[in-house]
Computed example of a mutant assay.
Amino acid sequence: MNEFIDAGPVREFTVSDAEAGPYALAEGPDGALWFTLVHRDAVARRDPGDGRVTVHPVGDGPTVIARGPDGALWFTEYRAHRIGRITADGDYSSFAPLTPEGGPFGITAGPDGAMWFTLSSVDRVGRVTVDGRVTEYPAPGAFPSAITTGPDGALWCTLNQHNAVGRLTTDGHGTAYPLPTEGAAPVGITAGPDGALWFTEIGAGRIGRITVDGAITEYPLSDPAARPHAVTAGPDGALWFTEWGSGRVGRITVDGHVTSYALSRTDSEPHGIAEHDGALWCALETGSLARIEVQP
C-alpha cells in the first residue's frame, strides 16, 4: 500500500486495514521497516524503496519487535505466550518461555548476545539465545513491561504495576527504583544519548529520566491525559515518544524541552516508535505508519 497523508513534517502511510493493528516497529538488517500487526497475528515488512508491504503470518498477538544480534527480527507473541523470530526472507520460528501463560511484552537485544524479554503476567524477565535456549529470572517488581539495554551493561525495564523502574544484571540480580509520582504506570523505556535511561509515565502524563545510579527526574507534559506510551532515541540527540491518548508524537531534549507533532487523527492510537531512514516512524493502531521528519 502506498497511500499517504502529507502534513508538513508528518506523513502517514496506510499499511493495513483498521482492524489489523500496527503496534510496534523496528528497522531490519535489510534496511526495511518491520512492524507487528497485533490483531492480524502477523509481522509485516515495508520495502524502503517502493513502500510495498509484505505480510508474514506468525503466532497469536505479536506485540513488540526488535532487531537481534543474529540478523533476524525477534518479537513477543503476547497471546500465544511465545517469543517469535523471523529472518529477512520471512523464515519464522518461535520459542516457549519456561513459565506458561507469561504474557511476553517487551523485548530487546541484550549486552550478552542474547535477546531479553519481559513476562508481564508472571513478573519475570526471560533470556533467549539465538539458538533458542531460554532462562528466566524474577523481575524486581510487578508487571514488567518494556525493556532495554542500559549503558551500564544491565537490562532496564519499566515495572508498570510496581510504579517503578527496574534494573537487572545479566546474572539475574534485580533492583527497583520507585517513582516519585503515584500512579505513573511506566511503560516505554530506552537508553538516551546522555548516558541515562528515559521512560514514559502513561498514567501521569510525564516523561521520566533515571541515571544508572537511580536518580530520577520527571518532566510533565502540557496535556496530562496524553498517555505517553513508547519512547526511543532519535538521530538528533533528543528523545521521541508517542502520545497514545492525544494522537500526537512528542520530542523531549535532554534538558527537558518538549515539543509535539499532531497526527491526522486524535484517535489514531500511536504505539511503537523507532528511528528509520533518518526520521522517526511510529505505528498507528488504526492502520498506518507515520513518518516524522527530524527538523534541522
Rank of each mutant, 00 (worst) to 15 (best):
N2I: 12
I5T: 15
D6I: 11
A7R: 14
G8K: 03
G8H: 06
G8T: 08
R11W: 03
R11G: 00
E12G: 02
D17E: 13
G21N: 04
Y23T: 00
A24D: 15
L25I: 05
D30Q: 09
D30H: 11
G31K: 07
W34S: 01
T36F: 00
T36W: 00
L37Y: 05
L37H: 07
V38R: 02
H39G: 00
V43S: 00
R45P: 03
P48L: 02
G49A: 12
G51P: 12
R52V: 12
T54P: 02
V55H: 03
V55A: 06
G61T: 08
P62M: 05
T63V: 01
I65Q: 01
G68Y: 13
P69R: 12
D70K: 12
W74E: 07
G84W: 13
I86L: 11
A88L: 11
G90Q: 06
G90A: 05
Y92M: 03
A96G: 08
A96Q: 14
A96K: 12
P97V: 09
L98H: 14
L98Q: 15
E101S: 15
G103W: 14
G106D: 07
T108G: 04
M115V: 14
L119Y: 03
L119P: 02
S121Y: 08
R127K: 14
V130R: 04
P138M: 05
A139C: 08
A139G: 07
F143M: 07
F143N: 05
I147M: 02
G150V: 06
D152N: 13
D152F: 12
A154N: 13
A154W: 06
L155D: 01
T158H: 02
N160G: 02
H162E: 14
V165N: 02
G166K: 03
G166E: 02
R167N: 02
D171H: 08
A176K: 06
L179A: 11
L179H: 11
G183L: 12
P186I: 03
G188L: 08
G188C: 10
T190I: 04
G192K: 05
G192Q: 06
G195V: 04
W198L: 05
W198D: 04
T200K: 09
T200N: 06
A204P: 13
R206M: 13
T211A: 05
D213W: 11
A215D: 11
A215R: 13
I216D: 04
T217P: 04
D223P: 07
D223T: 15
A225L: 14
A225K: 14
R227M: 15
P228S: 09
H229M: 00
A233V: 12
A233K: 11
D236H: 15
D236I: 15
L239C: 12
L239A: 07
W240R: 08
W240K: 07
E243M: 15
G247Q: 07
G250N: 09
T253I: 08
G256T: 12
G256Q: 10
V258D: 09
V258S: 06
T259I: 15
R265T: 09
I273Q: 02
E285D: 11
E285K: 11
T286G: 01
S288P: 04
L289R: 00
L289Q: 01
R291F: 10
I292K: 02
P296F: 05
